[in-house]
Design a binder for these strands. Structure first.
Length: 109
DNA sequence: GCTGTGACTCCTT
DNA sequence: AAAGGAGCCACAG
């Protein structure tokens, strides 16, 4: 398979994130079948210019907004997230009840 | 081909 | 809470 497929799978994984939900870059990579490729996902988003892509639903681990404050996209992401009912405080995405439930699942080996 | 870099993540101080 | 470091991957120079 070609390398371009990886990018396509990442984009699909992001498009698959339902409204009002969000995933970390690492989780997106995982869903795209590319474990440990969080940085790859970040790069794809950085270079992305598709306005239809819900890129704002992808954030850093722990709800952190990974985009540098200097970037205009930083504010843009927060704006879009709030528009979808998310709560953003101090550059962090507050976990919704639904996501918190998932986060509490034990991570047994 | 080696080096530095970053919209990453995890662990230790 | 904040900072530092290691592991990681793709890419530019």
């Amino acid at each position: 398979m070609s390398a371009d497929d990886s990018e396509a799978r990442v984009l699909d994984a992001i498009r698959a994130i339902p409204r009002g939900q969000s995933l970390s870059y690492g989780q997106v990579a995982e869903r795209a079948g590319l474990p440990r490729r969080a940085r790859f996902v970040a790069r794809v988003l950085r270079d992305n210019d598709d306005p239809e892509l819900p890129w704002h639903r992808s954030r850093g681990a722990g709800g952190r907004i990974a985009i540098p404050d200097a970037s205009p996209s930083h504010d843009e992401q927060i704006r879009r997230l709030r528009a979808e009912g998310h709560e953003v405080v101090n550059g962090r995405l507050r976990p919704s009840a639904a996501q918190r439930r998932r986060a509490e699942l034990p991570l047994l080996p």
